[in-house]
Nucleic acid binder design. Structure first.
Lengths: 205, 205
DNA sequence: GATTAAATCTAGTACGCACTAGAAAAGTCA
DNA sequence: TGACTTTTCTAGTGCGTACTAGATTTAATC
């Protein structure tokens, strides 16, 4: 009973790693098996199909990202500025997806290259995740520290998008850390790049 | 000499459309051929391999995006605010990638799911494209209207990332247009979502 | 140490993929 | 029309894929 759990974990880890770096298609059952020194057929003793295995990796990825953000928000003082909550969440997300383990990275990286069944499962997880951000933005707008003339849903997706796309260019070896990326996203999106007065008038969409 | 050019164009169009909606792996030579009512083998009279065909589609995509942004910038008055240039470029990009044809969409959509050879070709095109944005940001910082305490390269990638990721959620059927998305990105990234005073102090990375 | 259960392996199937060779058809122009 | 070229089709190859069946080994239990 013990051995099985250990190998199962090894398979999940190898899959997450491969998905994060090589993507869905290049992640073959055979390559996963090779990574942990097994035959490809042996994988099927632990998982009934490739997509069930991949699906489990993706679920773990979203769960870890959610946990990271939730934990960061829980540490805020009771009377925090809503913008500070947004800042903490953005940085937590950046660290989870860029600097964290393979699971959240696999999740974001394979977005958009999955077969329909998995895409559906994937999107469901993202929807739940999005609700955290919806609340953060709502808090800011309703308490008057964030602009109310922007479409909140679009704003949310733009923030998440900027963070998710960072996986395509972020290089852990460079001097810019995952937290730095998060801080930049926050600074740009909340305070703006502009010096002094805003550039043009408000929009209404 | 005429017939060949026309079918060649049909093949490119069908490939762009399939790449934009289904991605690289799901875009098979057979499916492309079916779309235009041909046998898959006939494709090889016009293109020597799938990847040569895909590569050409991607090149067209980047070219169109570059053209769209360049054209928008060319229409600015000589004494324009650097932030206005950024705004115009962001909206032009959004319209090209979200509301435009299949070619730019194919380009962004398949980013990160291509085989190594094509990835290299792809990245080269993006690098050239990035230079346009580098210049826009540099202009803003050097003329004093954009903050100088942010890493310009990171800022550039965050803007482009927010725009590129929009392809994953943007729905042309909804009431939010491609230009609206661009306007939102600009408002958030340049003016910020914050009302009044910035939230916390400057960063230095 | 023998018996049973768990885990892995060997060997194979079926299928979809990109791609090829050569025959057939369609178009071009005297 | 007839000779020639361009374009498309028919029919197939080889390969990598996910996955299966049954034998074989490894581990746990009495």
């Amino acid at each position: 009973m013990k051995k099985s759990d250990r190998t199962r974990q090894d398979i999940l880890d190898a899959t997450a790693s491969s998905l994060a770096t090589a993507g869905y298609t290049a992640t073959t059952v055979k390559s996963i098996a090779e990574t942990i020194g097994m035959q490809d057929a042996s994988i099927y003793y632990h998982f009934s199909s490739k997509d069930e295995l991949v699906g489990e990796v993706l679920d773990i990825g979203t769960a870890r990202a959610v946990t990271a953000v939730d934990r960061a928000l829980a540490e805020l003082p009771d009377d925090h500025d809503p913008r500070e909550a947004l800042r903490v969440a953005i940085i937590a997300h950046a660290e989870a997806v860029l600097g964290g383990g393979d699971y959240p990275r696999a999740n974001v990286r394979t977005f958009g290259q999955l077969p329909p069944d998995l895409t559906h499962r994937h999107r469901q997880g993202h929807r739940n995740y999005g609700q955290i951000w919806t609340r953060l933005i709502d808090d800011g707008v309703e308490s008057g520290v964030l602009r109310g003339d922007l479409n909140r849903s679009v704003a949310r997706l733009i923030i998440i998008g900027a963070l998710c796309w960072a996986i395509e260019w972020f290089d852990a070896g460079e001097e810019v850390s995952a937290a730095d990326v998060g801080e930049h996203v926050f600074q740009m999106v909340v305070n703006g790049m502009s010096v002094g007065q805003p550039h043009s008038t408000a929009v209404s969409v």
